[in-house]
Amino acid sequence: MSRRNFCATLALCALAPRAIAAAMSTGRPVLRIGLTPVFLDDEAIFLESWRAYLAKKLRRPVIFVQRGSYREIVELLGKNQLDAAWLCGFPFVRHEQYLRLLAVPLFQGKPLYRSYLIVPADDTRTTSLLDLRGKSFAYSDPDSNSGFLYTQFSLAQIGERSDAFFSRTFYTWAHRKVVDAVAVKMAQGGAVDGYVWETLRHSHPELTARTRVVERSPEFGFPPFVARKSLPETDFAALRQVLIAMRDDAEGHEFLLQLNLDGFVPGDRKLFDGIARMAEKVENQP
């Protein structure tokens, strides 16, 4: 078991007793929601109060499930072991056959975000991805759009492949850790979720100050909440309603502030067309 899994399990254990107690009191089945590091998913206190909020609003027990990679969450969704998940747009479009778009967060008023290319702050010479040839590079997750796919796409545009272009690449399995890796100069460049970087700039300015944003990608559909297709319609509608209504009550608004989001909207599948096109292009690269 890797440390990440271990941490996730620990968090689960910490949250489980109350969830089970809640389930016992209401007699309704537990709603399992998978979380991925598309947002700052390492704030245990925040997660617990948000989970309690959702359970209260849904009037049924809620469990948050965290795993070491996007892939594991997607697999759990596929096996119906999760009811919903906050995923990246890239795995959503790849596994659309058993997933259903639940809600899309609003970031800076739009359901959109960008991928950032960052380098250590004292690297003042790098102006584009091309300057990072032969250097080490940090990705977030192989199933991440902003932390992997967009960089692959950019390289494919100029006829390059990641493993040949960079001397060394590695995954940190979280956007936040891409920022860490670049800040300590473990990697000379990194691809990170723009929303995560901007949020970190508020909560941990000393960390983002050690990195410098070199390039910002075009806008893509924000990592959405998705549900397994087999989730009953009532459950689906209830969860979507609760998420969208968060911006309307004070408590939910407080959570959104902490998430650095403006709210949730039902969202349109078209938001993720850009990601789907990029994925196709990268997968079909000779």
Partner: peptide, 15 residues
């Protein structure tokens, strides 16, 4: 052992 076997450099660094 695990991170090196899986070539997970970042995990190795964290350890």
């Amino acid at each position: 052992v695990g991170p090196i076997a899986h070539d997970d450099v970042w995990r190795a660094y964290e350890i």
